[in-house]
Design a protein around this nucleic acid. Structure first.
Length: 550
DNA sequence: GTTCACACTTAGAAGCCAGCTT
DNA sequence: AAGCTGGCTTCTAAGTGTGAAC
């Protein structure tokens, strides 16, 4: 059933689609009378609009964001737009604003929520479930499917990543009048909230979204779409991995070709070949152009600048080393020292000749040209397929090599992929502390084991009575098992310190590799995938046997 | 060609909660 | 019973890639 993804004519994604429309956050309510905002030491009663935005800022007072100049300036500028004329005349300096009472009130509210009784929490939970039940599902071609993000994003202050020029700007409240509904012609049209109307109701079955609106900070479109567990998303996921498998069968030829292309007389071809070499070898992202000043300064392969690489004829006993140092997606730093072929090295020297640090490394190349070339080599091939392919093939090879210690091996293999894809995380604040605790537990257990062992020895010597013997034997065994478990946990945790495994698991690793491995190793699938991951990969669980090869 | 709009995937942070220890 | 921790969920920003308009 799942394999019928091409059952409709070109571009048609569904025949029937019915849903309740998105769920809107509650309207803002005025602050209680005893909570005050102060300007220049004096109480100022703000109007509804200005007060709401003030509270957004107040809530973030503990966050580093509110100390940054860009954030503060953007916030203040947008906040003033929400003020009445009178408020705007009065409030001209953010430094004279005192939000502390609002901040305290917010923290107390959070505390109060935490301190709720079990019964109260249950009431809340049930109310939430009712909302999910009502708004969280749709009917798509006879199937009831979960919607991913059925809630309209509440207003707040924009939190960009890294040095984002728009951080702190006001993200405005979305009204039904801003929202486009997409549903089937023959379905019930969702009812807008009382007294409101939709911006538009359309019936476009060539797209998969159920509702959309334009966000005011970046001017981009936001969509309400299905959950990853849905059939529609599952089919798309399966297709993605099938393209990657097709790449596997012709990657040798493609590699030979770009090695040849590096010698081309055409500069464009040579740049394309070197870029592809990086994308294949280092799993770099494509690197689309970005509008300057609109977002944080990040790059991918095609948008690398001269300042992002340093060439070393010799570095740490290796010849022809390229040192990469740049900010990638989400401002995650990519730092790597990579020995490359002489030919690549010579070309990079040439590409950098007579250029300033801020100039493009590949001045004749962009992602469009690269992808056009790739799709001529294999239909459906684009730059990002290399990431999927290299991630999945790495997992498969690693699992073959490390087939001894089961779960630890799987995590190691997963980790190798995460390192390749540069999926990082900030180590948890309490990391060192919790490692120390675990270590002391291990030490304690080790002592216990030694004790149990010597007791057993003694018992064997002194008494021949096997009843007490087997009891001690069991104690030793249990101790050993627990010790082993903790040691594995410690190794895992240490090796995972700065690495995020989730992203590759969810987006790059063909789940059929993992399903087949579980079957072969007799490891239960839930040791590898939690509930939502099993739901997302239901298609793979269904179709995969122990003999699957990527 | 170049730009822009659009639709969709990929991403880390933050929030939340169950289950453990103390 | 309270506090902590780690895993899971939610959130939404930030990418990729295509096709139409200019």
């Amino acid at each position: 059933d799942i394999l019928q993804w091409d059952k409709y004519e070109d571009g048609v994604k569904w025949k029937f689609l019915e849903h309740r429309g998105p769920f809107f956050p509650p309207e803002y309510q005025h602050l209680p009378d005893n909570v005050n905002f102060y300007y220049n030491g004096k109480v100022v009663k703000l109007g509804l609009a200005a007060e709401e935005v003030a509270l957004f800022f107040a809530q973030m007072l503990d966050h580093e964001y509110t100390t940054k100049d860009v954030f503060r300036n953007n916030f203040f500028k947008d906040w003033r737009k929400e003020m009445t004329l009178e408020e705007r005349v009065l409030i001209s300096d953010l430094n004279k604003c005192d939000f502390r009472e609002l901040h305290t009130m917010h923290k107390e509210k959070v505390e109060a929520r935490k301190a709720m009784s079990k019964e109260e929490k249950l009431v809340m939970k049930e109310a939430n479930q009712k909302i999910v039940e009502e708004y969280g599902f749709c009917i798509l071609d006879h199937h009831r499917e979960r919607i991913g993000n059925f809630k309209i994003e509440p207003p707040g202050l924009f939190r960009g990543r890294g040095e984002h020029p728009k951080q702190g700007m006001l993200k405005k409240r979305i009204q039904p009048e801003d929202v486009i509904i997409n549903c089937g012609k023959k379905s019930c049209i969702p009812e807008p909230p009382a007294g409101h109307h939709w911006k538009e109701v359309r019936h476009d079955n060539t797209v998969t979204w159920l509702a959309s609106w334009t966000e005011n900070v970046q001017g981009s479109c936001k969509y309400v779409m299905l959950n990853p567990s849905s059939k529609l998303k599952g089919e798309k996921d399966w297709e993605k991995y099938e393209v990657a498998r097709r790449l596997k069968s012709c990657v040798n030829g493609i590699r030979q070709q770009y090695q040849q292309d590096i010698k081309s007389k055409q500069m464009e071809t040579r740049q394309r070949a070197v870029a592809l070499y990086f994308i294949d070898k280092l799993a770099l992202r494509a690197g689309n152009e970005k509008e300057e000043g609109e977002t944080a300064d990040t790059v991918g392969c095609c948008s690398l600048r001269v300042e992002h690489i340093t060439l070393h004829d010799l570095l740490e006993d290796k010849e022809c080393v390229v040192e990469f140092d740049f900010l990638g997606k989400d401002c995650i730093r990519y730092y790597n020292k990579v020995p490359v072929t002489k030919r690549v090295f010579k070309n990079l020297t040439l590409f950098m000749k007579n250029k300033e640090p801020g100039d493009d490394l590949f001045d004749r190349l962009n992602t469009c040209l690269l992808n056009k070339h790739l799709s001529s080599l294999l239909p459906g091939l684009t730059a990002k397929v290399f990431r999927t392919f290299n991630a999945s093939i790495t997992l498969q090879e690693q699992l073959q090599q490390l087939s001894n210690k089961k779960l630890l091996s799987y995590n190691r293999a997963n980790r190798a992929v995460a390192v390749l894809c540069n999926h990082q995380r900030v180590p948890p604040k309490t990391f060192d502390q919790s490692m120390a605790i675990l270590q002391s537990k291990i030490d304690g257990r080790r002592e216990q084991l030694a004790l149990a062992k010597s007791e057993l020895k003694l018992a064997k010597k002194e008494v021949k009575a096997h009843s007490s013997d087997s009891k001690l034997q069991k104690a030793v065994q249990r101790c050993e098992e627990q010790l082993m478990k903790m040691e594995v946990q410690a190794t895992n945790r240490e090796e995972n310190k700065q690495i995020a495994l989730g992203t590759s698991k969810l987006n790059y690793l063909d789940p059929r590799i993992s399903v087949a491995w579980c079957k072969n190793m007799e490891v239960p699938l839930d040791k590898i995938y939690n509930k939502s991951q099993r739901d997302k990969f239901a298609w793979a669980v269904d179709m995969t046997g122990a003999d699957f090869i990527f």
